[in-house]
Simulated assay, not measured.
Amino acid sequence: MVKKNISKQDSRERILDVAERLFSTSSFASVSVRTVTAEAGVNLSAVNYYFGSKKGLFQAVYVRRCTEMNRQRLELLFSAVDQAEKSGGKLAMYDLVSALISPPIEWLYDEDGGLSVYIKFIARAYLEEASDMANVLEEEVAVFDKFIPYIREIHPDLSDEDIFWRIHFMMGVMHHTINHLDRIGILSHNNCQVTTWEDTRDRIVKFCVEGF
C-alpha cells in the first residue's frame, strides 16, 4: 500500500513538472492534456483523476510553488521584524519591500534548480483568462495583507487605498522585470548587464522604496 501511494504521488508530481514547463512557454489553449500526459508518461485520464480538468491542472501548477514562495516572503518579513525589535530600531521600508521581492527574483535566476521555469509560468499565468485564475490568484494576494500593518506604521500618512495602489505598482515593476529582464541590455545599448539576482533585487527594491 505504501508503494502504491508513493507511485501516485510521483505521477502527480511528474504531471505538474511537465505542465509547468509546457505552460511556461506556451499558452493555456495550445497545451493539450494529451501532450502533458504523454511527456509525463502517465495515462490520459490521469489529469482528470488528480486535478479534475485542464484548468484544475493549470491552477495546481500555480498553487504548488506559490505556497512555498509566500512562505519565504513571510519568513523574510518576520526575520526583519525580529531584527528591528532586538536592535531597538524601526523596521525599514527597504526590508519590507525586499521581503516581497526577493523570492521571485531569486527564483528567476535559479536555472539549475528549475525554479526559473515557475517564474516564467506565473508571468504567463496572469494573462491567461481562459484558465480562470481569479480564485487562485488570491493565494498570492493574501500574503500582502501580512505586510499592510507594518507599512501603515512606516507610512501613517498614507491611506489604505494609497498603500494598495503602491503595492500594485511595485508588483508591476517586478513582473515587468521578470518578463523582460533581457531588455535592459537593449535599452542601455549593452551598458547595463544582468549579473546576480541580488543586484537585480537591490535595484528594484531601491526604486520601489523611493516610489513609496
Rank of each mutant, 00 (worst) to 15 (best):
K3M: 06
K4P: 03
I6W: 03
K8L: 12
D10F: 08
R12E: 15
L16S: 04
A19C: 06
E20A: 14
L22V: 08
L22T: 05
L22E: 11
S26R: 14
F28C: 04
S30P: 03
T35H: 02
V36D: 00
E39N: 09
A40Q: 11
L44C: 02
L44D: 06
S45N: 06
S45W: 01
S45M: 02
S45V: 05
N48F: 03
N48E: 06
Y50P: 01
G52A: 02
S53Y: 01
K54L: 01
K54T: 00
K54A: 02
K55S: 00
G56R: 03
V61E: 01
V63C: 10
R65A: 12
C66R: 12
M69E: 10
R71F: 06
A80P: 08
A80D: 15
E85Y: 11
E85P: 05
S87L: 11
G88K: 12
G89Q: 11
K90M: 07
K90S: 08
Y94L: 05
Y94A: 11
V97L: 05
L100S: 04
L100Y: 00
I101T: 03
S102M: 08
P103H: 15
P104W: 11
P104L: 07
E106D: 12
E106M: 14
W107K: 09
W107F: 10
D110V: 07
D110Q: 08
E111N: 11
D112F: 06
G113E: 13
Y118W: 14
Y118P: 02
I119E: 09
K120I: 06
R124S: 08
A125S: 13
Y126R: 09
E128Y: 04
A130P: 03
S131C: 12
N135P: 04
E139V: 15
E140D: 15
E140Y: 14
E140L: 13
V141D: 14
A142F: 03
V143C: 07
D145Q: 10
K146Q: 07
K146P: 00
F147M: 01
I151R: 03
I151H: 02
E153H: 12
E153Q: 15
I154E: 02
I154V: 14
H155G: 11
H155L: 11
P156C: 15
P156W: 13
D157T: 14
L158H: 12
I163K: 00
F164L: 13
R166L: 14
F169T: 14
M170L: 11
M171H: 10
V173E: 06
V173R: 02
V173D: 12
V173F: 10
H175F: 14
H175C: 06
T177S: 09
T177V: 05
I178E: 05
L181Y: 09
D182H: 15
R183E: 12
I184D: 05
G185C: 14
I186N: 11
I186V: 13
Q193A: 14
V194W: 11
T195H: 07
T196V: 11
W197Y: 13
E198V: 07
T200L: 13
T200E: 13
R201G: 05
K206P: 02
V209E: 01
V209F: 05
G211W: 09
